[in-house]
């Protein structure tokens, strides 16, 4: 048997999920971050964040349709990480990298946190 692999499939699926998010189609949770509301798909949040995995794998929380994060979480950093979840692009710059690192640690996204750390070291070196 042959397996025909569509090499673009993973990226095309994620792009469609981001289209669904921007049209608010099948989004099933509202995340409140310091007054700002973000609509998202629980499955994407759980797939990308250890924090959301532990929250929604708890049977008591599985049907939650709204969750508010610790007020110390920065909305701008959260939106950068949410966009990363849906696009694979992490939009870093010197002004957001520290809060994005802290928020990635809070959301238990250690690979992203490591990347933020390397970004900071490279910039301070230059």
């Amino acid at each position: 048997d042959d397996c025909i692999q569509f090499t673009r499939h993973a990226g095309d699926v994620l792009l469609n999920f981001n289209r669904l998010r921007s049209r608010n189609i099948l989004t099933d949770v509202s995340i409140q971050v310091d007054g700002q509301l973000f609509r998202a798909h629980k499955a994407i949040l759980v797939a990308c964040s250890g924090f959301f995995y532990s929250v929604f794998m708890d049977p008591e929380n599985a049907s939650l349709s709204a969750i508010s994060l610790d007020p110390k979480v920065d909305p701008k950093a959260f939106s950068i990480l949410l966009d990363f979840m849906y696009t694979s692009c992490l939009n870093l710059n010197d002004t957001v990298v520290v809060t994005t690192l802290n928020t990635a640690i809070y959301l238990q996204m250690e690979h992203v946190a490591n990347t933020c750390h390397r970004f900071m070291k490279s910039r301070s070196v230059q």
Partner: peptide, 21 residues
């Protein structure tokens, strides 16, 4: 994205969900 240089990160991006808990 205009004027943004893209750095390719080849490593793992997110946690891996276990086959069963």
């Amino acid at each position: 994205y205009e004027g943004v240089n893209t750095i390719k990160e080849m490593g793992r991006s997110i946690h891996e969900i276990p086959r069963q808990d």
